[in-house]
Amino acid sequence: MANEKILIIDDDDDVAYAMRLPLQAAGYVVYRGASSEEGLRMVKQVNPDLIILDVMMDTTTAGFQVSLTLRNSSASSEYAAYRYVPILMLTAIHKTTPLRFGPNEEYLPVNAFLEKPIQPEALLEQVRKHLEEKPV
């Protein structure tokens, strides 16, 4: 179970730090990409077992773009190999923000949402759950 690779794609150092500590304590190897581009590059480099993805980075929907790129259904996509990597999406989107999404396979292919602020226990539980469910 340990030594599984987790990639955090988040532009906020502090949030990344707050997540890194409990994940490392639980024995995971944690990588981080500080932007959508760096994140996508890291996916290919690291081949993570699970991705934690922030919604709002350089643009309000950057996280959505990353998840759509990774889950692109075409077999010729350069990310085709990473299609089934579970994605946990971090949201702090308040209900009155114009953009509202719920997990929906069709439009937003992510496995679960994590609400900010991070609750370390809840984070670890979600990570464990989705690593176990990960299709082989």
């Binding site: 906020d12 949030v15 707050a18 997540m19 500590l21 304590a25 702090a92 602020p117």
Partner: peptide
């Protein structure tokens, strides 16, 4: 956003990590 981050950090600390 920053208030959220502070809460994340404090919770991480409180959880003993």
């Amino acid at each position: 956003s920053p208030v959220g981050v502070i809460r994340s950090l404090l919770r991480t600390m409180l959880s003993g990590y």
